[in-house]
Nucleic acid binder design. Sequence first.
DNA 1: TCTGGGGTCCTAGGACCC
DNA 2: TCTGGGGTCCTAGGACCC
Length: 345
Amino acid sequence: MDHFYTAVEEREHPEYKGKPVIVGADPKEGKGRGVVSTSNYEARKVGVKSGMPISRAWKLCPEAIYLPPNFPLYIGVSNEIMDIARKYAEKFEQWGIDEAFLDVTSKVKDYVEAEALAKQIKGEISEKEQLTCSIGIGPNKLTAKIASDFQKPDGLTIVKVGEVERFLEPLPVRKLLWVGRKTEAKLKTLGINTIGDLARYDPSVLTETFGVMGTQMHLMARGIDRSEVEPRTEVKSISHETTFEEDTADADTVLRALEALSETVSKEALDQRLLFKTVTVKVRYENFETHTRSKTLPFMTNRTQDLKKTAKELLQAYLRHDRKIRLIGVRVSSFVKGEKQKTLA
DNA sequence: TCTGGGGTCCTAGGACCC
DNA sequence: TCTGGGGTCCTAGGACCC
């Protein structure tokens, strides 16, 4: 989907159209902490992008409409869109809240038919949801994903089997799936900037430097990706975290927040009929140093009291009067589908 | 510029079991 | 006397995705 959160907000509030809109943390006149989740194209024009500190967005565009994220709304719209798209695919894989892979191998006989299908999907989403999306078509997931990002918004990019390498060659390595900021920087030190540079590089050196990931990257750079479109399996963890308005070393403040997070998390586990065994607490100090500590219980549970008690124990080591805490988080994992859920609750 | 929140997957070391 | 080999599970950290 194109600038999904802000697009949904514009749809719900037509008066926002044509103005810069930013969904993210409260900017607080430039003093807010947190980041931009999504900015619309008017805000992008002046340089406001996803992931940017909200304080910087304020400097670039104080006149923008700033909105807190309305996740229940976005999830609802996302579900409707996924239901539309799913119908067209033989195999379907949701990717985050606003992207999906569709394997349509058995649905179309060539790229002409694939293009027609893509237009049909765009048409149905536009008609039913008044939202635009950008679609990429390719012989594998990697190519389709990069193609989908090639022309935005409202784009449609087709890369046929024989065209993959030529299409990828000039693009920066960062466009490859799994090449993030750190890997990009490492590759740069090897003199690798474009996907073409990577494709021509000695694969044995890549494997030496990056392990399995290096082998994988060299294949991707040559347009080779044999991964399947596969439906997301069950959820593997549930977590909530919060950044304090102000960093604090006050044990009471931190414990109260930890309890609130524990309650939200255990309620969610209960709603999803999941019993958990592992509890993880996350702490970020004011200097951004981040730690996690986890404990696997000798029993399955979904009780708030078990979670609170374990989380508190795990937090103790991090509560130091001389170290201010910026963020805390609580996560549960190691699930089994619960039969005994009701008894425990 | 000063860094959210929800996730997944991988790695490496260590405990423990047979 | 001092140490195999195969396996699973747990913990902590880190990279990446949207």
